Simulated scan of single mutants.
Amino acid sequence: MLEKSVKTVIETCLGLKPDERLLIITDTATDPVIGDSLLKYAHRRSNDAVLLTMKERDYNGEEPPDLVKAAMLEADAIIAPTKRSLTHTDARINACKRGARIISMPGITAEMFGSGGMMADYIELDRMIRSVRPLFEDAKEVRVRSTAGCDLILDVTDCEWQVDSGICREPGIGVNLPAGELFVAPRGADGIAIIDGTVAGLEEEDTLLEVEIRDRRAVSITGRGSEKLKDLLDRAGDAAYNIAEFGVGMNPEARLIRNILEDEKVMGTVHIAFGTSAAFGGDVNAGIHLDCIIRDPEIYLDGERWNWEMIDPC
């Protein structure tokens, strides 16, 4: 099953060309079988591929070592199966500015690599998400409600909705794998978010959080796990309390497994994120990005109900 996923990553998603230089970045907390499998497959294709293993970062969005940063600037394509996310780092942004294509796989495990969200038909998933995007792009306001008490209003006027479908063939773009979400850096956010799913950085914790949000900032965080979440945010500084992202899960193969990489892609969920938004059209660079899952939401676009049954499944 790993062979299938390796082929999906390199052939289907990355579309790696024979003359391209591939950099694989992993760390001491990630199963080495993933990086090794990717490297061996690339070498069998005669690609100029290099594998770097760094020390595990402390949190999502923390910059990699300078040696890794330098290597990223020389690569045509990058695959990063790491414990903590490199997606929202200056290193990733600068590499993309140089034209690199980057697939980030933060928190990936060997079991995840060969099952669940990785089994999606990524060509069809790309088509499906792009077919939905115009509905969200036309909206000025997104409202999220749930029976758990969530009632959050996001101002998305003139915001650019981003597609993360796993297809990473154009210079300068970055995606996650497993993929499958439509997301945005909102202009504004107000209300109450009930986070009753996985919280990035606290995947092993039994969390249930109530977040009061005013002017796109979390002004109060209470509930199970709140002190630990606030500790993570406080380490990064005041900007970490920014509401950086709103995302809609779109991958029909993804499962809720208490791993934020896959959980945020689950069809029928949405998520918000704290911290950095500069990597995808926002105006905050906090040095941290923490996604948080909201289960069983109701979504309203300018007052009109939208749900996943309105799209064709893959």
Rank of each mutant, 00 (worst) to 15 (best):
I79W: 03
N251R: 09
G117Y: 07
L16E: 09
A80E: 11
M1I: 14
P252W: 12
G180D: 00
N47I: 14
G172E: 02
G275K: 02
K69D: 09
A100Y: 06
N251V: 04
R235L: 13
L86S: 12
K17M: 12
I79T: 05
K40M: 15
G117M: 08
L39M: 12
C168N: 05
D155P: 03
L86T: 06
S165E: 06
D291A: 07
E309R: 12
K230H: 04
A244Q: 10
I311H: 06
E204S: 13
D196E: 10
V9N: 04
W306C: 03
I129D: 00
R305A: 04
E56P: 08
I260N: 09
A179V: 02
P65H: 04
C150E: 04
R84P: 01
T207F: 01
G166Y: 07
G197N: 04
A189T: 11
L67Y: 15
E304Y: 06
D196K: 08
L209D: 00
R57N: 08
G61P: 08
A80W: 03
D121V: 11
A240R: 01
C314W: 03
I123P: 03
E20Y: 11
R98W: 02
G287C: 06
G268R: 05
G114M: 14
D283Y: 07
V50L: 13
I243S: 04
E212N: 07
M119S: 15
S37M: 08
I260G: 04
D27V: 02
P313M: 09
L38C: 12
D31A: 12
P297A: 12
A42S: 13
P65G: 02
L152N: 04
L202W: 03
I195G: 01
I153N: 08
K228F: 09
I108T: 14
A218G: 06
L177H: 06
I102M: 14
G268V: 02
T28D: 12
V184G: 07
A189E: 09
E203Q: 10
M310V: 08
T222D: 13
P297C: 00
E262Q: 11
A29G: 10
E203L: 08
E74L: 11
G15Y: 10
P32C: 12
S165R: 01
L182M: 02
F274N: 00
I260A: 09
K228R: 14
I260H: 05
I192A: 05
L52K: 05
C159M: 13
I194N: 07
N60E: 10
I192R: 13
I221G: 04
G99I: 06
I243A: 03
I299N: 03
A49M: 13
P65F: 02
D151Q: 00
V33R: 13
T269W: 05
G282T: 01
L135C: 05
G223F: 06
L261Y: 05
N47F: 07
L182R: 09
T222M: 06
T276M: 10
E56M: 10
L232G: 04
P134D: 11
Y41N: 08
K140I: 08
R84H: 14
I78H: 11
H43K: 15
R145T: 15
H271C: 06
I129S: 03
